[in-house]
C-alpha cells in the first residue's frame, strides 16, 4: 500500500534476505565440496538437524553460543565421517545412504532432544555484531554489516571457498578426484582420502547451517527445525553449477524472494498468499530454466571409485 517501496521497507527486505541466505550458503558450500569430489550427500538435512540440536544443547548447558558452534562442528564432522564410511569405504549407493543419513539425523536429534531437554526451551543465542565504521554506511550498513557472526562467516566463506577450490593444490585434487578419479589415482592422489576430507568439511558446514537456525535465529529447538532447508541447499548446489559464486547468487535469489514475499504479505498487498509462499521456489526454478547453456557437472559425481576401472 502507501509507501510500499519506501527506502526503509527496501532495507528491511534486503537485510532479512541476507540473514535468510545464511543457512543455505553454509550448507550449499559444504555440499559443493562434497560433490566436487564426486560424492553427493543427500543427508545434508539430517546433518543440519544434528548440528542444530548440538549447537542448541551445548549453548543451553554452558550458556556459550561459541561453544555451541564448536560442538556442532564436531558433530557435523562425525556425521560426514559416517557418510564417508558408508559411501566411500563401503561404496554404498549414495542416494540411498544419504537419505538414510537424513532419517538417522532426524530421528536421533529428535530422540536426544526428548531425552535430554524435552519441551520448548529458550536459549540466549548469538547477538548481532555491528561492524564499526562499516555499519554506519547508509543503506549498505544495515543490510550487510549488522548481523551475527555466522552470517559474516557464511559470506566470507564464498570467496574463501573459491580460493581453496581454484587456487590451492587441495582444491585441484578435489576437482581431479571428482572429474577423473582414475587419473588422479594414477598421479598418487588418494581418491578415498580426498572424498573423506570433503565429506567431513561438508558435514561441518551443514551442521553449522543447522546451528545457525537454533543459536543464530530461533534461539530454541524443535523437532524438524530445518523444515527442508537442507534439500533446498542441495538444489542450490546444482543451481550454482558447483561454483561458490553461483551458490551465492542462488542463495541470495531464493532468500531475497522469500524476504520480499513475506513483506508483501505483511503489508497486505492484494496477492494470494499461496503464490507468495512459493515465490522463492518459482523464481529459482525460472532462473535455472532460462540460464541453462553450459551444463557441467563433476564427471564422477555419484560413482564410487574402484581402482582399475574406468569411471
Amino acid at each position: 500500500m502507501e509507501g510500499f517501496m519506501s527506502i526503509d521497507i527496501f532495507i528491511i527486505i534486503l537485510a532479512t534476505g541476507v540473514r535468510l541466505a545464511t543457512p543455505f550458503l553454509l550448507a550449499a558450500l559444504g555440499e559443493m565440496f562434497v560433490q566436487r569430489s564426486g560424492v553427493y550427500n543427500l543427508g545434508v538435512e539430517g546433518i543440519m538437524m544434528m548440528g542444530a540440536f548440538a549447537g542448541f544443547f551445548a549453548t543451553l548447558q554452558q550458556g556459550s553460543p561459541l561453544l555451541g558452534i564448536i560442538v556442532s562442528l564436531a558433530i557435523g564432522a562425525l556425521m560426514g565421517l559416517i557418510m564417508a564410511f558408508v559411501s566411500v569405504t563401503f561404496k554404498a549407493e549414495q542416494g540411498i545412504s544419504g537419505i538414510g543419513l537424513y532419517m538417522f539425523g532426524w530421528g536421533l536429534s529428535g530422540l536426544l532432544f526428548r531425552l535430554y531437554v524435552g519441551g520448548v526451551t529458550s536459549i540466549d543465542g548469538l547477538k548481532p555484531i555491528a561492524i564499526p565504521m562499516l555499519s554506519d554506511i547508509p543503506l549498505i550498513g544495515q543490510v550487510l554489516f549488522n548481523h551475527n557472526v555466522l552470517v559474516y562467516t557464511a559470506f566470507l566463506l564464498v570467496p574463501l571457498s573459491g580460493i581453496v577450490l581454484y587456487k590451492t593444490s587441495w582444491g585441484l585434487n578435489i576437482r581431479a578426484v571428482g572429474n577423473k578419479p582414475e587419473a588422479a589415482d594414477t598421479l598418487g592422489v588418494s581418491v578415498v582420502k580426498i572424498r573423506y576430507q570433503c565429506l567431513i568439511v561438508g558435514g561441518m558446514l551443514a551442521a553449522l547451517a543447522g546451528a545457525f537456525l537454533t543459536i543464530g535465529q530461533a534461539n530454541m529447538y524443535a523437532d524438524n527445525i530445518t523444515a527442508g532447508r537442507g534439500f533446498i541447499a542441495i538444489a542450490l548446489v546444482y543451481f550454482g553449477r558447483w561454483s561458490p559464486w553461483g551458490i551465492l547468487l542462488g542463495s541470495l535469489l531464493f532468500s531475497m524472494a522469500d524476504s520480499f514475499q513475506s513483506m508483501v504479505q505483511v503489508l497486505g498487498i492484494n496477492f494470494p498468499y499461496e503464490l507468495a509462499v512459493i515465490l522463492p521456489y518459482m523464481v529459482t526454478i525460472i532462473a535455472l530454466a532460462i540460464s541453462y547453456g553450459r551444463v557441467w557437472a563433476p564427471a564422477a559425481l555419484g560413482k564410487p571409485f574402484e581402482r582399475g576401472t574406468r569411471g
Binding site: I225, A227, S259, S262, Q265, V266
Partner: peptide, 22 residues
C-alpha cells in the same frame, strides 16, 4: 501473513520479525 507450513519455527520467527519491522 502465512509461512505456508505448520512446523517451521524458524520461518515463523522470521515472519514475526518482518511483522515487527513493518
Amino acid at each position: 501473513a502465512y509461512t505456508g507450513s505448520f512446523n517451521d519455527i524458524v520461518g515463523a520467527g522470521n515472519l514475526a520479525k518482518t511483522q515487527m519491522s513493518a
